[in-house]
Design a protein around this nucleic acid. Structure first.
Length: 271
DNA sequence: ATGCGGACCTGTTAGC
DNA sequence: TGCTAACAGGTCCGCA
């Protein structure tokens, strides 16, 4: 599920339900996520109040008086506010229980996600301190990208998916943004002109904004249960459309493999 | 410094 | 129909 639009959709979905609520218990059923959930999580969280729910890249930051809970949803994670009496299902690894009748429930079948506690400035946490700029801010500009790109020979797609450069651009939206910008995913980064970086930056912002407004993209897992699907899927131009025809020129969409990830593009519209 | 491949883990699907 | 292999929205880490 989670690329930046999905994480932001999650943040907006849970914030009003848990902000200013007091934690009365923490139930950890499975601590082996990407990194083990700290043993003292229950002790650290119980009795604290959530002061805000923020996002940095794809990390969610649940700020409390004594520290911050960092949550990453990995590939398959989701966070939902549920009635605390609702029986947990197979991959419901953590419940953060509130003084209201609710609990915040972390589900993550693949367990690539993370839940960590820090008492310091969370933005200085090892996992956050070297993150690149937020894509939906003015800091993320063509000049910024161009400046960092000059000696890089990696493919442009890998470059924009590098979280040290810009956060939140995952595989789906990288493919979509490159289509909108008319840039082939395999082009060496250093060969992309400032003018084309301009188009790329605009495309990334547009794709992410549209996806957020549509509630994210739902491909597989997220469709079931009562979690509403995201509606961005209908707007996809290339992702998961290998063999289908380009919506702009009717050529056949191609799929290649870059690293371990699938790249989709139109060889006519993208050069 | 940069780039690449492997690692983490389970569920679903494509292919035989 | 059933088994196996490949693949899936992420990203850190170690090595060349």
């Amino acid at each position: 599920m989670p690329e930046l639009p999905e994480v932001e959709t999650t943040r907006r979905g849970i914030a009003s339900h848990i902000t200013h609520h007091c934690i009365t218990d923490v139930i950890v059923r499975q601590r082996q996520l990407r990194w083990p959930i700290p043993n003292n999580l229950r002790k650290n969280l119980t009795g604290q109040m959530i002061s805000s729910v923020e996002r940095r890249g794809k990390y969610l930051l649940l700020r409390m008086q004594m520290g911050t809970l960092l949550v990453h949803l990995g590939m398959s994670g989701s966070l939902r506010v549920v009635s605390k009496s609702l029986p947990p299902e197979k991959h419901d690894h953590v419940d953060i229980v509130f003084d209201s009748k609710t609990a915040l429930r972390l589900r993550d079948p693949r367990r690539f996600g993370a839940m960590l506690w820090t008492t310091r400035d969370p933005l200085q946490h090892k996992l956050l301190k070297d993150l690149g700029v937020e894509p939906l801010t003015e800091e993320f500009s063509a000049e910024y990208l161009f400046h960092l790109s000059r000696h890089r020979k990696v493919a442009i797609k890998s470059f924009i998916m590098d979280s040290h450069i810009v956060v939140g651009v995952g595989n789906i939206y990288a493919n979509e943004a490159l289509f909108l910008a008319g840039i082939r995913p395999t082009v060496a980064t250093k060969r992309v002109s400032l003018q084309r970086m301009q188009k790329l930056v605009a495309a990334i912002k547009l794709v992410l904004k549209n996806a957020i407004n549509s509630g994210g993209t739902t491909l597989r897992d997220f469709t079931r249960g009562d979690g509403r699907p995201g509606y961005f899927r209908q707007q996809l131009n290339v992702y998961d459309r290998a063999g289908e025809s380009c919506k702009q020129c009717a050529s056949t969409i191609k799929c290649i493999r870059q690293g371990q990830r699938a790249s989709y593009y139109c060889s006519h519209c993208q050069r």
